[in-house]
Design a protein around this nucleic acid. Structure first.
Lengths: 180, 180
DNA sequence: CTTGAAATACTACTACG
DNA sequence: CGTAGTAGTATTTCAAG
């Protein structure tokens, strides 16, 4: 891959050249069959070379590269990252946490969100409907280290009324890729 | 990057060349300062070229490449993937689902897990402790499409006693990268 | 506006010290 | 681990659909 210059490449409107694709109401722009094939591949393995990718989607290398760069500049591809095996990296424990705040004021929410993002190993934090205000997922080494985190950080998050911890016993599925 | 041949490269013991690093009890093998710097970078942006990566970690290009390949072969780097912006791809809605099964038998769990992985847009599925048996996260287009999914798929998952849906109103944090 | 072919610049990769 | 050389790729340019 290699991200080199990427000079003044104008973000073109990107109309689906010739073939009229269905594209059932996509927000940004219509993706044709080839774009979707590219995205499916890159979601699975982005370490593939551009020439190999071009061959897979039956396109010349330059044309393929242009599409990939367009997808990146349009923001549809947020980034290309390496996925680390949590267990191998010493963060084999996953805990899902439901949080209820004391008060439902904008200040209370803002303060909590600011602090929550700094919690070590916090992978996700979402505002939800229902009996909780937030769900968070936290990666940590083991139950000892989680206990420490719980006692030293989670219980001191601002404006928290209640915290319920759901320890993950088995990770059935965990993917970053969704259907296109 | 480009994963080309990657021939019979033996998985070397990976002795920290000169400087003796502490490495506080890592499962697979000790990671020195440079390995961690490489992993931090690749977790953030893996589209960087090897020469640029080598410069960042103050190493020669071949030495850097050898480390990256060792990290891949050791399984610590599970893969390199493109992250898609869900909203731009027409899957802007996220729902967290708590599931309680009818019976807590091995067969019941196995049957559920098999079916759950086939649910369209299911990103995560975990066995948890506490008042639920499973937590799932599902990405879908909007509330209409979620309602359809709920009525047509979720309610027909085998052995389900109860399903509670927590609609995500705001995604505060969602990352694939954790501290090293 | 997009594609593909050819030419160039740079990188990944190999052998060796 | 670093240096030097080779092979292959990314990237630009350009012409054409």
């Amino acid at each position: 891959m290699s991200t080199r210059k990427v000079r003044g490449a104008s973000i073109a409107p990107a109309t689906a050249s010739a073939t009229s694709e269905s594209a059932q109401a996509d927000p940004l722009h219509a993706l044709d069959r080839i774009d979707r094939a590219i995205l499916r591949q890159l979601q699975t393995d982005a370490s593939i070379s551009n020439v190999a990718l071009a061959a897979k989607v039956k396109l010349s290398a330059p044309a393929c590269l242009r599409r990939v760069e367009r997808l990146k500049e349009s923001g549809l591809i947020r980034g290309v990252v390496a996925l680390i095996d949590p267990k191998a990296a010493g963060a084999g424990m996953l805990v899902i946490i439901g949080v209820v705040l004391d008060r439902s004021t904008p200040e209370s929410f803002a303060e909590f969100e600011k602090a929550a993002q700094k919690v070590a190993g916090c992978m996700e934090c979402h505002v939800v409907t229902g009996e909780f205000d937030y769900f968070m997922t936290i990666r940590t080494r083991d139950s000892d280290s989680f206990n420490r985190l719980h006692a030293e950080q989670l219980l001191y998050l601002p404006g928290v009324r209640q915290i319920r911890s759901f320890m993950v016993l088995k990770e059935i599925l965990s993917t970053t890729k969704f259907p296109l």
